[in-house]
Design a protein around this nucleic acid. Structure first.
Length: 397
DNA sequence: AAATGAGCCAACCGCGCACAG
DNA sequence: GCTGTGCGCGGTTGGCTCATT
């Protein structure tokens, strides 16, 4: 007996959603909360299958979604996490609460894959040349200068990246211009649509699915990144999140206090997380440790074998991991440079502290396990980038 | 001006997992 | 333990726009 279709194929509308459909869907979810998707088409009269409704909501209508350009930080996150987790877009998206897995996946496929490939080639070339010097320098060193990956890519192939950037901006303007004719590209419509009701607490769903919203106090942090226009006046803002546990079932001990202090937000362990990432804290720490990430030669098969799901593609190349690490570091470095102009003193202090930590972690094995590269990175981001609220929603960080 | 190619992204499809009965 | 149902995930596609020829 074959699996029955999720819904009757007959009479099911496909293709782009219309404003009317969106309004209907949003109104329904406002009233009943997300979930129970099966009943949505029936109760709303939408000629869409339940999956389509869910997808439309999660990828587009859901409030708090950030669209548009990915920041260098986000790029670095994605590349890094992709190297670690493979194409686990949902898991990666859990680290970037404002981005949908679909968005990240698209961005990876259309931008980052190319960038990384190019970067790998450059890294390989650099390694070749450096091999003549009989020793492999740290990844952050064998990369030329302090220029960011993006910058270096531009310098090496301006036309490509310019076109890429142009594409991004083009895509932006395209979205805006095409919104005249292509409704699906306009988030503003939805934002306005949602604005009215987002500030009212949605009724708790009668079903077992809790409301995905948490109310967050007004925050300046939102201003820069949230394109959703929900907090344009700095009032109380509702941020989305059914905060699913970040991909690996981590319990980062030094964040535990924060979790406990802020445990008013229930943590929803997704099924995915529970069943696809049963990796121990130690394993992940080990995998993420700065040493492992930093030295391409350490990113060997044995390390890969300890990875969840043992995805070969994500570990198939130590260069990939090294490139990803270097990319992240370069991005991070680039951001620090940018920050320096604004907040020089604070960053100096932070960098000193960071260096101290790094030195301690690298030199003293008797100390508690070092912060993973990712942790440090994220922590530094949180300190140095008050405007980046990427991890803010995740109690893990 | 028209044809073609490339890039982008929203949406679809199929599969697998969890859970209730 | 089995079956049906609902949901989530990752891969892929289709259609749109812009750039190039």
């Amino acid at each position: 007996m074959g699996r029955p279709p999720c819904c009757d194929k007959v009479g099911i509308k496909k293709g782009p959603w219309t404003p009317e459909e969106d309004i209907i869907l949003v109104s329904y979810i406002q009233e009943h909360g997300p979930g129970n998707w099966r009943s949505v088409p029936t109760n709303t009269g939408l000629s869409r299958c339940s999956k389509s409704c869910r997808l439309r909501w999660t990828n587009y209508l859901r409030p708090g979604i950030k669209r548009g350009n990915f920041t260098p930080h986000e790029e670095g996150m994605i590349i890094h996490l992709q190297a670690l987790l493979g194409n686990k877009w949902a898991a990666i998206a859990s680290y970037l609460p404002q981005r949908t897995d679909n968005d990240i996946k698209n961005y990876w496929n259309t931008h980052l894959k190319k960038k990384l490939k190019k970067f790998q080639q450059q890294a390989a070339a650099s390694m070749d040349s450096s091999s003549h010097n009989h020793h492999l320098q740290p990844s952050s060193d064998y990369l030329p200068s302090s220029k960011s990956f993006s910058d270096r890519t531009i310098s090496s192939s301006d036309h490509i990246n310019n076109s890429d950037n142009n594409n991004r901006s083009r895509s932006q303007s395209q979205s805006q211009s095409s919104s005249i004719t292509t409704y699906a590209s306009s988030t503003e419509n939805i934002s306005r649509l949602l604005e009215g009701w987002m500030r009212t607490s949605p009724k708790p769903s009668s079903s077992s699915s809790p409301s995905p919203f948490i109310i967050k106090g007004s925050s300046n942090h939102e201003e820069n990144n949230n394109n959703n226009d929900n907090d344009d006046d700095g009032k109380e803002v509702l941020l989305v999140k059914s905060v699913s546990m970040p991909a690996l079932n981590l319990e980062l001990h030094h964040h535990q206090n924060n979790i406990e202090e802020n445990n008013s937000d229930p943590i929803k362990l997704s099924r995915y997380d529970n069943h696809h990432h049963n990796v121990s804290h130690e394993e992940f720490e080990s995998i993420l440790s700065f040493e492992n990430l930093n030295a391409g030669s350490c990113w060997d098969k044995s390390t890969c074998d300890s990875m969840p799901n043992n995805n070969h593609h994500k570990c198939s190349s130590s260069e990939a991991a090294a490139a990803a690490t270097a990319f992240s570091q370069q991005n991070h470095h680039h951001e620090i440079e940018e920050e320096e102009e604004e907040d020089d003193e604070d960053n100096e202090e932070e960098k000193k502290k960071k260096n101290d930590r790094d030195n301690k972690n690298n030199n003293n094995n008797e100390n508690p396990p070092p912060l993973s590269f990712l942790e440090k990175w994220l922590l530094d981001e949180n300190v140095g980038h008050g405007d980046e609220e990427i991890m803010e929603l995740s109690p893990m960080f």
